[in-house]
Amino acid sequence: MDCKSIEAWICDILDGSLAERDARMVNDHLATCAACRYRIQENRRLSDLLGSVPSMSPPPYFERLVMRGIERRYRRSWRETLQSFYEDMVHPLRMLDRRDLLIGLVSLPIALGLFLAIFCHIQLSIFNSQQVGLLTFVSDKPLVAIPSGEARSEEGNDAVTPVGISSPALIRFVESAAKTEAKGDDLLVMVYVNQYGTGSIEQVIEYPNDHSILNKLNTLIASAKFRPARRNGKRVDSYFLLALNQVHVLG
């Protein structure tokens, strides 16, 4: 037996689990080798010391942490998931105090009202466009402007229907142009609208002094979407007259 063997068997030596014959050989060696005796002593002391280092217990909330994790990840039924979702949604509201809740309850209808007002304003302005200086008559036959400012189709006035322009940008432009730039029937154009609602200037009847107005109008008409006229329930190509600074309401 040499020191290397002692090193290899050191675990068994410390545990006292050597066979009798091996133990005798080890003892014989240790009796003559101070270095190995010292090594075994220190190993034993180290082992005792390591065993005496205290550890920690898990905190009391550890069980709750684990069980909750399991609940969340594996155990939930659909009903429980929905319930939890509902609680997650409602819980923040429960956290609010009464004042916050009151502010919320009051401000919600106000916000809704404001939204409706803005929406209605846009709708009304579209509707009112028939009465703010535009000739907006629609027919599926080319229109003719007559000196009184009315529009007439080849089939006569009965075939002409007033219609609103469904493009706020176009309405705004024409309104502002009517107020500031144009004089009298400075601009009178016939607009062609196909059955898909795309418009273009078909004919310029009155010419404005300022060509930029006509150009701008042309661009706006090309980019606007129109409501196509219907005949017998089917969409048809149509025409309408558009004039600046005129107030003519049919009927």
């Binding site: 090193e7 290899a8 050191i10 675990c11 090594r39 220190e42 190993n43 002391r45 180290l46 082992s47 005792d48 010391l49 390591l50 065993g51 005496s52």
Partner: peptide, 20 residues
């Protein structure tokens, strides 16, 4: 065994004086 040897080297001074 190898780990203990390594520890013994690092904790040489502690082992001389330490009690559990």
């Amino acid at each position: 065994a190898r780990g203990r040897e390594e520890l013994r080297r690092h904790l040489h001074d502690v082992l001389r004086t330490a009690c559990p």
